[in-house]
Design a protein around this nucleic acid. Structure first.
Length: 588
RNA sequence: GCGCCGGUAGCUCAGUUGGAUAGAGCACCAGACUACGAAUCUGGGGGUCGGGGGUUCGAAUCCUCCCCGGCGCGCCA
């Protein structure tokens, strides 16, 4: 059987519903909320009662009669107002188990039609260090790109660097004040400009906050930054040369940060990559009367009559003529449409920008150059500190990502020492394990929460290694790996799977749910369903592991069967861990 | 003011088209290791699902009003 048990049951019941002139979708079957009664249930008869004009139990009875005797089904019972309780046959379980064991995808199917999907996530800014605010976008976006790829889509992950806005002008003017003798500020300088950046990434990271604060405090200073931004966008050679240096040193630092997270991108594009498209795009939109002038700015009105709220116009060019992130976002859509031809673009961006994306999507629709593309803003909530307020350092500043990872690493080491884990390892392996544990704690905690809601980041709790945490999942995987080594030493080989014990059946049910979990996570763009599945699976395995001896089982067939089950679990666990961006070490 | 999101066990959070007795982890209580790795497993107590009203055979879920919290609302990103 190559499809999940619940899917197979659903199809059988669907036919029975159809035979009564009812929609096949009513046959939808899922794991039971009353496992004491049966493993699976179908609620379709109750939903059908209204349209069929018959009592639900009568419909349920007809369905039950139609499917009883099916080799897939051990028993079918009707309960309450019309629940159909189903127990699959032992043969169905074993067929499915052996099919799963032979499948290198461990039961997860792929989409019927592959699409080209751009995922826009990460979104770091030049000159600003990655901080905790970038963590969610990076982790969620990465999990989604892994998941979409796994489901068969062609995925293009783009980091979409913030490298072309006002912050560049702020930094340029700040540096001009601090180091006015640099050739970049001399209008008469004829080059060539130095190859080396005049500032290191560390210096850049301190310049930006100074610049930002100065501009916020002083209107004239802000105007200076605006003018510099515009000059940069118009191509002033000194500014461009300087900006390239900023870009270069920033990218190097960002790549280190993303590598530490084990997050990777297909494209390292940014706002500036569409600079050449901006003028022609604006001219075209004005030409076609889609964009108009309003209070000195060029805008696209995006409000509609039936809007509940007042939607401000989409600003394409500021009254001083400079482009802003709205401009580059729209131009980026045009660019992606022409160069990548995607079916879908996903934006993994903070939920506070939902109004902005509403505007961008409407502007894109009015512009008419993205008619075949679907857009979704996958908004996520804020990461808060234990006090429930946005995460800050003790001093009240923003915590740099690198510092957060370092803190998590030290915490992992402390916990490992406490538990006496991996004490026999060489330093390098030990450190690598601690890194994996730290990342597992952070990523699992983030992904297991609902994407849209805020959540409390509490490293102590994520790092407890007990219960529903990333480290527990790594432990579960490592324990299976250890078991496989033991089996090999003992000469046990995996064989035909037989389901005899309750713990074996429970493990199989958990394994069989992988397809459903990955499909739901995919459809809802919600990695927390993957996390739930990973945890349920790890727990089911632990139950099986403690209830059913494997290498030490009495007869050879049982050993072979249980080892195959363990092997299958490991395969699936590795897959699902991979989808949430985790990797289990071989031992720990 | 308008709009969006949230309010579920002491704490942190799940809950797929409305379905049976609302779940999980932590914490708490009681058990299980001379070990296929106890970072584990088995069992237990604990909830007027923010409040009222409505639709329905049936509501955490749908509609409506109210309370509380977070966020957003034209030239920052």
């Amino acid at each position: 059987m190559q499809i999940p048990i619940e899917t197979a049951l659903g199809e059988r019941l669907g036919k029975a519903f159809e035979a009564q002139g009812l929609p096949a979708t009513l046959g939808a079957t899922a794991r039971s909320t009353r496992p004491d009664l049966a493993p699976y249930q179908c609620n379709g008869a109750m939903a059908a009662a209204k349209q069929a004009g018959k009592p639900p139990r009568e419909i349920a009875q007809a369905v039950a009669d139609a499917v009883s005797g099916d080799p897939l089904i051990e028993s079918v019972e009707i309960a309450g107002p019309g629940f159909i309780n189903l127990t699959p046959s032992a043969k169905a379980l074993e067929d499915r188990a052996n099919a799963l064991a032979e499948d290198d995808r461990a039961g997860a199917r792929i989409v019927d039609e592959a699409r080209t999907v751009v995922i826009d996530f990460g979104g770091p800014n030049v000159a600003k260090p990655m901080h905790v605010g970038h963590l969610r976008s990076s982790i969620i976006g990465d999990s989604l790109q892994r998941l979409f790829r796994f489901r068969g889509d062609q995925v293009i992950g783009d980091v979409h660097l913030g490298d072309w806005g006002l912050q560049m002008g702020q930094i340029i003017t700040e540096l001009a004040r601090e180091k006015p003798d640099l050739p970049y500020f001399d209008k008469d300088f004829e080059g060539p400009y130095p190859d080396e950046s005049p500032v290191t990434i560390e210096e850049l990271e301190t310049i930006y906050p100074r610049a930002s604060q100065a501009c916020k405090a002083n209107e004239a200073r802000m105007d200076e930054a605006r003018m510099a931004t515009q000059a940069l966008q118009e191509g002033r050679p000194g500014y461009i040369a300087l900006w390239r240096h900023f870009l270069e040193v920033s990218k190097a630092a960002l790549k280190r940060d993303f590598a530490a997270l084990d997050v990777h991108f297909d494209l390292w594009k940014g706002e500036s990559d569409v600079q050449d498209r901006i003028r022609p795009m604006v001219a075209d939109l004005v030409e076609r009367d889609i964009a108009t002038e309003d209070k000195g700015a060029i805008v696209i009105p995006v409000a509609r009559e039936d809007d509940k709220k007042e939607l401000p116009p989409f600003i394409l060019l500021k009254s001083d003529g400079a482009a802003l992130y709205t401009t580059t976002d729209l131009a980026t859509i045009l660019d992606r449409s022409e160069t990548l031809n995607p079916d879908l673009i996903l934006y993994v961006v903070d939920k506070r920008q939902s109004l902005h994306f509403e505007q961008v999507f409407r502007a894109a629709a009015k512009s008419g150059f993205a008619e075949d593309i679907s857009f979704e803003h996958l908004a996520y909530g804020t990461m808060n500190g234990p006090d429930g307020k946005p995460f800050k350092t003790r001093a009240g500043g923003v915590l740099k990502l690198a510092d957060l990872l370092d803190r998590a690493h030290r915490r992992a080491v402390a916990r490992m020492e406490e538990a006496g884990i991996a004490s026999d390892m060489e330093k390098a392996e030990y450190e690598a394990v601690a890194d994996k544990v730290a990342l597992a704690a952070i990523k699992f905690a983030d992904l297991s929460h609902d994407r849209a809601t805020d959540y409390i980041f509490d490293l102590d709790r994520f790092m407890t290694f007990e219960g529903k945490t990333g480290p527990y999942l790594l432990y579960a995987a490592v324990r299976v790996k250890s078991l496989m080594r033991k089996a090999e030493d003992a000469g046990v080989e995996p064989g035909e799977i037989r389901i005899k014990e309750k713990a074996e059946a429970d493990l199989l049910y958990a394994l069989d749910a992988f397809d459903r979990a990955s499909a739901t996570a995919y459809e809802k763009r919600a990695p927390n369903f993957l996390c739930d599945h990973a945890y349920t699976l790890a727990q089911a395995f632990s139950g099986f592991y403690s209830a059913c001896p494997i290498v030490t089982a009495e007869d050879a067939e049982t050993r072979a069967s249980r080892l195959a089950l363990a092997q299958l679990t490991l395969t699936q666990l590795n897959l699902v861990l991979g989808l949430i961006g985790l990797e289990a070490p071989d031992r720990m």
